[in-house]
Design a protein around this nucleic acid. Structure first.
Length: 841
RNA sequence: GCCCGGGUGGCGAAAAGGCAGACGCGAGGGACUUAAAAUCCCUUUCCGGUAACGGGGUGCGGGUUCGAUUCCCGCCCCGGGCACCA
C-alpha cells in the first residue's frame, strides 16, 4: 500500500535544507579520504575574492555548475575533492578597506565568514577542512617560496623600465590590467613612470605555452584568447648597414636601456644579430618577401641608436620630437588610425637587397617594446607605412602584384593581399607564399638576416607598490647585493601598519617603516633593507590549486604523494575573464615547477571549461544599475535546491543566461511535484512498462548531458519524465521514482537526500551509484515515422521498429493525406530507418 | 580593422543534415472551491479558415542537398576580447 510514513509531511525546503547541511557537516560527508579514497577526482572552481558585498549570483552560478559536476562524478563512483579558498590579497580588498577606513586585515575574516555561510546555504559539497586564504601567512609563506624558485631558476629579474602607472590607485599595473589605456579597476587614464620592478621571464616559455594548447582539453574560446595574447609572429630579423655612421660611439644595447630595454631584461641578447659594430641596425619583419620594396627605415623615438644616428642638422628637430613623445602617455600613443607623425634623422641606411639608400626616420608608431624597436617600411604593402609615406612624401615601390595588377601599376593604397613578386630581381614571379622563405634564405646566405620568431607576450611584472600583498622575499645589502630571504626564514610577514594608504611617491607603504625593512643581511649580517614592494595577486592564484591537498603541511608547499595522487586537476571551471591572466600565469608557474622537478606534470588542469555569465533583462548586473540579485533572499524564499536548479535552467552553462524574476516558479513546481510523487508512491505490483521506458531514456539523457555541462537540457529531461510520471494524476510506482532521486541529486541535493532517507535508506544518496541505463528497456517497440513528399511533411505512420522500406512505402501510399500529394510513381525514395520516409516525385 | 561568441514564438530556450519551437515562464480557457490561493486539465509560431486543412516561417542574400536552424560563400545586427605588435 502507499507508504503513509511519507505522506503527511509537506515540502518545506528551508527545514530539510538546514537539516541536511548540518548532517553533511556532522558526518564529514564532504571531506573525502584523500589518502585512501578510490578513483580520485579533483573538481575545482576558481576561488573568489571575498568582497564585502558577499557572494554574487555570478559566483553562485559558477559554483553551482561546478558542484553539480562534482556530485555527479561522485555518483559515478569517484572520490571527489571539491575545495574552495579565498583570493583575499590585492587591490580589490585594499581599495575597499581604504574606502571604509577599516584595516583589510580586519575586514577580510569577516567577509570570508559571510562567504562560508552563503556557500554552505547553497548546499555546495565543499571540503571545508582543506580551505585556504591567500592572506594567511601559512599560505603566503609558500607564495614567497614560489618566487624564490623562479629566482633560483633565473626566471625572476629586476629591471627599471617604463611602466603603466595608475594615478588613482597609485600603483603600477600589468599590461593586462590596462584596458584601452585606462586602469581596469577604476577607469583612470594610465600614465608612464619609470620604476625598478621584479619581472618573471614568462616570454621564455611563450613557445611552450602556445604549443601545449593543442594538447589540453579546454574551452576553445579560452585557448583562442591565449593564442592571441601570446601573439606568435614568424619572420626575420634583417640587418641594415648605416651609411656614414659615426664610428666608435658604442653598441646601442649598452648605451641606454632605461626605456627601451623592454621586458626581455638585460642579459637576453645572446642570440640576437645585434652587431657590436654599431654601424648597422636590425629590424624585425614578418614580410621579408617585400624587402625589395623597403624604401626607408623607422625607429621608435626612444631607440638608443637615435642619438648615434642623428645628424647635426636634424638634432634639434629630433630632440623636440622625442621630448614630445616622452610626455605622451602610452595610451594615446597607441591609438591606431591617428595621423602619422615623425622626423627624419638625417641618416641613411642601405637596403641589403637592392643596395639603394634609405632614409632613417623616427616615429611614434614604432614601438620600442616589440621586435627590435625598428622597422623597415614597405609603404606599398603595409597600411601604416603607406600612410606615413604619404604624409612625408617618401618613395613607394610596388613589389607584389595581385591578380591582374601590372608590375608598374601605381599604388594608391597599401596592397596586403596575395600575389607574385615584381621589381624584386631574381625573385620576380615568385608567389608571395614562397617568397618569404626564399628571400630569408638568400639574405641569410649574405649574412644580412636570420629567421626569428617574435611573441607579443611581455614578461610578467609582479611588483606592486602597495600594502595588501605578500612581501617579496628579497633583501638588499650594500655589500652583498640582492639577497634572497633564506627559505627557513619564510614567511616574510606582512606587518600590521595603520598607514597603509599608498601615496604619490611610487614607493610602497612598507617603505615608510624602517622598523620593518631594516634587517641584517642574511649573508654578511650587516644592516640591509628588505624589498618593500609586495607581489601581484596573480602570483597568489597561480599555484593555489597545488595547496588544497596539503593544507595540513607546514614543512612543504605541497606533499609529493598527495600531489601525485590528486593532480593535475581533473576538471576546472571558471570565468573567461581570466583566460589570459590567471590561466596563463598558472600554466607558466606549473611548467616552471615541473622543470625544477617539483611536479610530475606541466599542465595544471586536464579539462577546463569557461562558464557563461548571468545577465538581468539583457544587461550586465552592476551595483550602479541596482539590478544585482542577492542570492540570500532567493534561497530564503525558494530554497537552495530551487535556486540552484533555476540558475542552471536559464540556459546552457557555457553560455550563461538571463535572470528573470518569474522563471523560478517552474523549477519550484517541479520540486513540489517530485516531493508529492515520492510521497505517494506505491510499492505493490509492477511498474508501468511505458514509464520505465521513459525512465531509462531519461537516465541516459541526464547522464550524457550532465557530463558535458548540458545542465539546462538535463533538467528539461527530468521535467519531461515528471510529466510522464504524473500524467492523468496517476500514482507512481516506487521503482519508477527511486532512480529519479539519484538523477536529481546533483542538482537538488537536499530534497534528494530527504526523499532517499524517507524511502528507507540509511546511507546518503551520494553513497548510491548512478542508475544503469538499460537499452532494452529504453527501446521503443513502435515508432512514429514522418512521411514527406518532396521534403514536406504530409503524414505520420506508427510502425514497428524493424519495418522495411517496401512496407513503409506501401503504408504511406495507402494514407489518404499522403497519397493526394503523390500524383505519379515516386522518382526517388529516401528512407531513414527510425526517422522518416521522403517520396520525391 | 582583426579574433571569438550569438541572432529561432510574447519571453528564457530545444533540435546526430531528417516532424522547427522539447522543457519552462507568461497569456487565454476550463475543473475543483461559497470565493480566492494552491492544484489539475486543455489551448498558445504567424497568416487564411468555424473546422478539416492550406500556405509562410529559425537576422538578410545566394549555394550544396531528396531534405538546411544545422554545411559552404557573401553581407547585416548584438555581446565580448584584442588592436599603430611591423
Amino acid at each position: 500500500m502507499t507508504e503513509y510514513a511519507l505522506r503527511t509531511a509537506p515540502y518545506e525546503p528551508q527545514a530539510i535544507e538546514q537539516k541536511w547541511q548540518s548532517r553533511w557537516h556532522d558526518m564529514g560527508s564532504h571531506t573525502p579520504d584523500l589518502e585512501l579514497g578510490e578513483r580520485p577526482y579533483y573538481q575545482l572552481m576558481m576561488f573568489p575574492y571575498p568582497s564585502a558585498e558577499g557572494l554574487h549570483v555570478g559566483n553562485l552560478y559558477a559554483f553551482t555548475g561546478n558542484d553539480i559536476q562534482g556530485r555527479f562524478q561522485r555518483l559515478q563512483g569517484h572520490t571527489v575533492f571539491e575545495p574552495i579558498g579565498f583570493d583575499a590579497f590585492g587591490i580589490h580588498s585594499e581599495n575597499y578597506a581604504l574606502k571604509v577606513g577599516v584595516h583589510p586585515g580586519k575586514l577580510i575574516p569577516r567577509n570570508i565568514e559571510n562567504f562560508r555561510r552563503q556557500i554552505r546555504s547553497a548546499g555546495l559539497m565543499v571540503d571545508w577542512s582543506r580551505s585556504l586564504s591567500t592572506t594567511d601567512p601559512a599560505y603566503y609563506k609558500w607564495t614567497q617560496w614560489v618566487f624564490l624558485q623562479l629566482l633560483e631558476k633565473g626566471l625572476a629579474y629586476r629591471k627599471k623600465g617604463a611602466v603603466n602607472w595608475c594615478p588613482f590607485d597609485k600603483t603600477v599595473l600589468a599590461n593586462e590590467q590596462v584596458i584601452n589605456g585606462e586602469c581596469e579597476r577604476c577607469g583612470t587614464k594610465v600614465e608612464q613612470r619609470s620604476l625598478e620592478q621584479w619581472f618573471f621571464r614568462i616570454t621564455d616559455y611563450a613557445g611552450r605555452l602556445l604549443e601545449n594548447l593543442d594538447t589540453i582539453d579546454w574551452s576553445e574560446s579560452t585557448k583562442t584568447s591565449q593564442r592571441n595574447w601570446i601573439g606568435k609572429s614568424v619572420g626575420a630579423e634583417i640587418v641594415f648597414e648605416i651609411r656614414g655612421a659615426v664610428p666608435g660611439s658604442g653598441g646601442w644595447r649598452e648605451s641606454g636601456g632605461q626605456l627601451g630595454s623592454k621586458d626581455l631584461g638585460e642579459a637576453r641578447d645572446a642570440g640576437s644579430l645585434v652587431p657590436s659594430t654599431h654601424s648597422s641596425l636590425p629590424v624585425f619583419t614578418t614580410r621579408p618577401d617585400t624587402i625589395f620594396g623597403a624604401t626607408y627605415l623607422v625607429l621608435a623615438p626612444e631607440h638608443p641608436m637615435v642619438d648615434v644616428l642623428t645628424t647635426a642638422v636634424q638634432r634639434e628637430a629630433v630632440g623636440r620630437y622625442r621630448e614630445r613623445t616622452a610626455k605622451q602617455d602610452l595610451v594615446s600613443r597607441k591609438v591606431p588610425d591617428k595621423a602619422k607623425t615623425g622626423v627624419f634623422t638625417g641618416a641613411y641606411a642601405v637596403n641589403p637587397a637592392t643596395g639603394s639608400p634609405m632614409q632613417v626616420w623616427i616615429a611614434d608608431y614604432v614601438l620600442m617594446e616589440y621586435g627590435t624597436g625598428a622597422i623597415m617600411a614597405v609603404p606599398a604593402h603595409d597600411e601604416r607605412d603607406f600612410a606615413f609615406a604619404t604624409v612625408f612624401g617618401l618613395p613607394v615601390k610596388r613589389v607584389v602584384a595581385g591578380e591582374g595588377d601590372n608590375s608598374e601599376a601605381l599604388v594608391d593604397a597599401a596592397y596586403t593581399g596575395d600575389g607574385r613578386l615584381v621589381n624584386s630581381g631574381e625573385f620576380d614571379g615568385m608567389p608571395v607564399s614562397e617568397a618569404a622563405r626564399a628571400i630569408t634564405a638568400w639574405l641569410v646566405g649574405r649574412n644580412a638576416a636570420k629567421p626569428v620568431v617574435n611573441y607579443r607576450l611581455h614578461d610578467w611584472c609582479i611588483s606592486r607598490q602597495r600594502y595588501w600583498g605578500p612581501p617579496i622575499p628579497i633583501i638588499y645589502c650594500d655589500s652583498c647585493g640582492v639577497q634572497a630571504v633564506p627559505i627557513h626564514d619564510l614567511p616574510v610577514l606582512l606587518p600590521h601598519i595603520d598607514d597603509f594608504r599608498p601615496d604619490d611617491s611610487g614607493i610602497s607603504p612598507l617603505a615608510r617603516h624602517k622598523e620593518w625593512y631594516l634587517v641584517p643581511c642574511p649573508e654578511c649580517g650587516k644592516q640591509a633593507r628588505r624589498e618593500t614592494d609586495v607581489s601581484d595577486t596573480f602570483l597568489d592564484s597561480a599555484w593555489y590549486f597545488l595547496r588544497y591537498t596539503s593544507t595540513d603541511r607546514d614543512d612543504v608547499p605541497f606533499d609529493s604523494e598527495m600531489t601525485k595522487r590528486w593532480l593535475p586537476v581533473d576538471f576546472y571551471i571558471g570565468g573567461n575573464e581570466h583566460a589570459v591572466l590567471h590561466l596563463l600565469y598558472t600554466r607558466f608557474v606549473t611548467m616552471v615547477l615541473h622543470d625544477m622537478g617539483h611536479l610530475g606534470f606541466e599542465e595544471p588542469f586536464k579539462r577546463f571549461r569557461a562558464h557563461g555569465h548571468i545577465v538581468r533583462e539583457g544587461a550586465k548586473m552592476s551595483k550602479n544599475k541596482g539590478n544585482v540579485v542577492n542570492p540570500d533572499s532567493y534561497i530564503e524564499e525558494w530554497g537552495a535546491d530551487a535556486f540552484r536548479m533555476y540558475l542552471m535552467f536559464l540556459g546552457p552553462f557555457e553560455e550563461g543566461g538571463d535572470f528573470r524574476e518569474g522563471g523560478i516558479s517552474g523549477v519550484k513546481r517541479f520540486l513540489d511535484r517530485l516531493w508529492k510523487t515520492a510521497s505517494e508512491v506505491d510499492s505493490t505490483g509492477e511498474p508501468d512498462r511505458g514509464v520505465m521506458r521513459k525512465l531509462h531514456q531519461t537516465i541516459r539523457k541526464v547522464g550524457d548531458d550532465t557530463r558535458v555541462l548540458g545542465y539546462n537540457t538535463a533538467i528539461a529531461a527530468m521535467m519531461e519524465y515528471m510529466n510522464v510520471l504524473r500524467a492523468g494524476e496517476r500514482i507512481s510506482h516506487r521503482a519508477e521514482v527511486e532512480p529519479l532521486l539519484i538523477l536529481v541529486a546533483p542538482y537538488a541535493p537536499h530534497i534528494a537526500e530527504e526523499l532517499w532517507e524517507r524511502f528507507g535508506h540509511a546511507e546518503s544518496v551520494f553513497e548510491a551509484r548512478w542508475p544503469n541505463f538499460d537499452p532494452v528497456l529504453a527501446a521503443e517497440e513502435t515508432l512514429e515515422l514522418v512521411v514527406q513528399v518532396n521534403g514536406k511533411v504530409r503524414g505520420r505512420l506508427i510502425v514497428p521498429r524493424d519495418v522495411s522500406q517496401e512496407e513503409v512505402v506501401q503504408l504511406a501510399l495507402a494514407d489518404q493525406a499522403v497519397a493526394k500529394f503523390v500524383s505519379s510513381q515516386p522518382k526517388r525514395v529516401i528512407f531513414v530507418p527510425g526517422r522518416l520516409l521522403n517520396l520525391v516525385t
